[in-house]
Nucleic acid binder design. Sequence first.
DNA 1: CTTATCAATGTAAACGTTTAGATTTTTGTA
DNA 2: TACAAAAATCTAAACGTTTACATTGATAAG
Lengths: 340, 340
Amino acid sequence: MGKKPTILDVAEKANVSVATVSRVINNQGGVRKKTEDDILRAIHELNYVRSQVARSMVRKETKTIGVIIPDICNPFFPEVIAGIEKKAIDKNYFTMLSSSGESLVKEKEIMKHFIERGVDGVVITTADEKGKHLQPLMDANIPVVAVDRMIEEYDVDTVLTGNQEGSYEAVKHLIHLGHKKIAIIRGPQETTPGNERFKGYKKALEEYGLPLKEEWIGEGNFMENSGFSIIHHFHSLKDRPTAVFSCNNLMSIGALKAMRQLNWEVSRDVTFLGFDDVEIATFMKPALTMVTRPKRKIGELAFQLLYERMNAAESDHIPKREYILTPELVIRDASNQVYK
Amino acid sequence: MGKKPTILDVAEKANVSVATVSRVINNQGGVRKKTEDDILRAIHELNYVRSQVARSMVRKETKTIGVIIPDICNPFFPEVIAGIEKKAIDKNYFTMLSSSGESLVKEKEIMKHFIERGVDGVVITTADEKGKHLQPLMDANIPVVAVDRMIEEYDVDTVLTGNQEGSYEAVKHLIHLGHKKIAIIRGPQETTPGNERFKGYKKALEEYGLPLKEEWIGEGNFMENSGFSIIHHFHSLKDRPTAVFSCNNLMSIGALKAMRQLNWEVSRDVTFLGFDDVEIATFMKPALTMVTRPKRKIGELAFQLLYERMNAAESDHIPKREYILTPELVIRDASNQVYK
DNA sequence: CTTATCAATGTAAACGTTTAGATTTTTGTA
DNA sequence: TACAAAAATCTAAACGTTTACATTGATAAG
């Protein structure tokens, strides 16, 4: 196994200079047909493949983006990632993926590595929306796009979904079904999704003059477990809610599991509606209405924004952009039930 | 925004040579405490971060691995990836992820890019198990680990799960429940999982002297749709099966959806058991028994094997290794039903 | 037949590290 | 104090590209 052939080997074999070879592999034109053929043949015979790392070195770009998410096992993310990656590949970028596990420390480490590796841009769903810890990215002048959670400290492009809007519609829907006692399993209030989704809930309740009852507000953390235990709590109440709105997919799963365990039967004893769809919603009888989001599109848009920044001239200053995609209430069987 | 500081800037600021700086950032020792402090201070003041790409260039290693999977949206993969990434980060490797969409062409392209980028190793769930197309990786001397699907052409390390074993146990379980008419939704027979899982089914049937009925063998393609339509087919038969074994998660989902649509009620009219767990199995009443796999461990092991190869001396020739992890039959409520 | 122009190709200097080998400084010993 | 050995540090050559600029060769115009 001899050393790998370099551009120099190709040049020698084809009796030209490296510059000419470089010209043809980057097809910049200005090379005589015959010369080009010779070079192509040499490349083929030597089985030459150019080193992207050497290239990155001089071009000062790696054609690589970094993606930081909290947890790839949350079913929200794979599709977002698929969206990012799809668009990225189209533009010849590759994607480095890393999960922070919601840990700020881990996130910083990942960032540091990304910077060392010279990623051209970063897509991030941060564990801490204050975002001060993004400083190193700013220092390194690396474009950033925030997905699903905003960055307060810096003006970075952001792709969100209408969190408040989505849960407002959801809760309004429950009210229209006749519910007056609507509980919420909410997320951490220091996060955008947690906070905004709660706001939507509050807004709907206020609009219809319904009480915002303390004991019907469950303090979840967006993990399955919290949904589970909050349902246990709701179930234990004297005055049980007749409907429960859960603020994310994982908590919904936990909640549904708890309900099943408690024999608190969904759609008969209690109505359930969640932000972000879960597979089981389709299977339950009746099938559950849910708030869904255009996940793939979120990813695609995120890359699009990043791409524009990565390829903007130093001179043109693009102002911060914020996209808020509209979630959709997917109405299923459960919505035919009518409560008094 | 001035240019990014290089090791040279640090050296100058600290009044030493680049070699010394290099020594401290790689803490190789052999530098006086005071000198080290000076350098560390300079690094800090300049906000220096070393270029991994320059480093890769001379070290001829990128500390990056490439992962190729068919589809990140298949819930089997995120957890495998999480396993890989976890172990990788621990060892200071980063992961580039790309989905082939089961397309051989796409897979080749991805491989080419990985090679150009000089990944130190590749984990792959290939779209074509013949694997001839891995030649470029072999040429480039890049270690490969196959996950979930084997590579016939080359001796690469492989991490599989006991496909035959898993479905054998599953079908045996159905037989023990009293079923005599067991249908299968199988996968493509040119793939290991497709073929092996079918073998397990056949073996169990033979062992108990049950007929292998043509019309109870559904030709699926591992996608949701095929599970869906095969159930429609089974349902249309004069002689319907009393149990259905589905060979992967996506087809199970499709199948369950179809059953629901047809009002062919699971566990009452028909028993359902699938290879690879799906979330809904937990929610159905009764909850469904399923074959599960140690997904995270698969990922971890895959990286482990890759790591060993990446860091093996040129001299020591590690023979091909093949791990077959044992799947587990998770028995749930549905298994209490008894059929005659 | 010059000479200016243009196309094709070549030369060599980056890019930012690591590292072998050379050199200097320090330390320990006689 | 002198000298050898050990420790610390430095010099410079890689690594494999791209690219500004220089050179060559061919073509067209005068």
